[in-house]
Design a protein around this nucleic acid. Structure first.
Lengths: 227, 227
DNA sequence: CACGACAGGATTGTCAACAAAATAGACAAT
DNA sequence: ATTGTCTATTTTGTTGACAATCCTGTCGTG
């Protein structure tokens, strides 16, 4: 998992840096409202400032950073209302995808999911949050790709990324992590069992704890008042 | 509606050019698989090539053009499967939004929709396709913004844009256009009547004719065979 | 005639320098 | 103590030139 800069050409270089920044944001290494300064990033990734510029533009398109003309980029600061809205769409999209996934699933897909799940569990057990993050992403990507509609899968991916900003402050909570890993295991079991109804419910419910954690964390920081 | 380049600074300039290219693609002035050459566009819009580069990158992110390294950008060529997939997501998102829109609607929103509808009808009657396109976009944008979830509204907007590539070959069909305008009128009526069930069905069914038109056009060009 | 190597032109990718704008800090005035 | 204003510094935006890559047509060779 520890990748060095693999890139001969820079189309993948953009991807690499984007992923890395998404990761930093999701893991709370860069916090909401924090500034992202082009030259600093250029130095850090040993790359021309223009590459960073492009990356920031992409991240803005995805919706995880905000840019103001002549003022630079900051990590987007989601309000509870934003978070509710994002999770509401996620529920819709992921529920639909869960209804579309063939049950029982394609053996190759199932095997891949099991493998990722195994590695994800291991990373969680050893407290390697970076790997946990990547493998969680990979699990969901592989999982939803199985719905057969790449457009839908991509939209799910995009909204999951947005939600990651909201999760950044609570993502390293061991209890949440343990629960998520367990739920992945259950999802696999329900797939094999071919129990559509419980499977769909499991998928939809799976995203709730992280939202709740955000909300609780927010209340703890700002009080009960709904602004 | 005939806007001149309004832009003092170039953040809005990007928007302006993006919209213009989207329009050209949607109206079939630039066809699927057609190349988009950076320098040509730079000349056309009297702007530096870097600006075009940025725009192309954005359009790639939206998914209406495809870029290959060192080979340039082309308008994305959707397959019938792509189109089915896109419309399937549109149905899901727009149906959900229709369920969320307050009925009867906010008077201000209703008034705005009626005004746009009136202008849209007029443009359709006079055969001004550019205005038809813009006003149709505006109608849907205003309409779905009323669902109260900006994240959902944005996703709907994005998928509608993708669908526009598919519509480009049939967008100027007068029968389709007349039907669409009529359906907008009905949507407004059902909103006022507060008839949720028929309203939602109307919204979901509204997107079907354009998909059917694409499919028929595709069959006419390539035969019945499903590739 | 078919095929492949090789130029030449067209197109995209990268970079470094310059211009414009915004921020931060010092200092003065209320 | 707070606000306002000016200047120096930081940061972002824009441009032109150059490098790398790909495509096209041509020519020679079997």
């Amino acid at each position: 998992m520890a990748l060095a800069k693999p890139t001969p050409s820079s189309l993948s270089e953009l991807e690499f840096i984007s992923r890395r920044l998404e990761e930093d944001i999701a893991l709370g290494r860069i916090l909401p409202r924090e500034r992202l300064i082009e030259e600093e990033l250029a130095d850090r990734f040993k790359v021309n400032r223009h590459v960073i510029r492009q990356v920031l533009s992409d991240l803005e398109g995805i919706g995880i950073i905000v840019r103001q003309r002549n003022k630079g980029a900051t990590v987007r600061d989601l309000t509870p209302v934003d978070v509710e809205n994002i999770y509401s769409v996620r529920e819709l999209l992921e529920g639909k995808a869960a209804e579309m996934i063939k049950l029982p699933p394609d053996p190759a897909v199932l095997a891949e999911l099991k493998d990722i799940h195994r590695r994800h569990s291991a990373a969680a057990a050893s407290g390697n949050f970076t790997d946990v993050f990547r493998l969680n992403l990979l699990f969901h990507k592989t999982f939803f790709a199985a719905c057969g509609n790449p457009q839908l899968a991509e939209a799910i991916q995009n909204f999951a990324l947005k939600a990651h900003i909201a999760r950044s402050l609570t993502i390293s909570d061991p209890a949440l992590l343990k629960r998520a890993v367990g739920e992945h295991g259950q999802m696999i079991q329900l797939m094999e069992a071919g129990d559509r109804k419980r499977f769909v419910k499991m998928v939809v419910d799976h995203i709730i704890p992280s939202k709740d954690a955000y909300m609780e964390n927010y209340r703890r920081r700002f009080g009960m008042a709904k602004p």
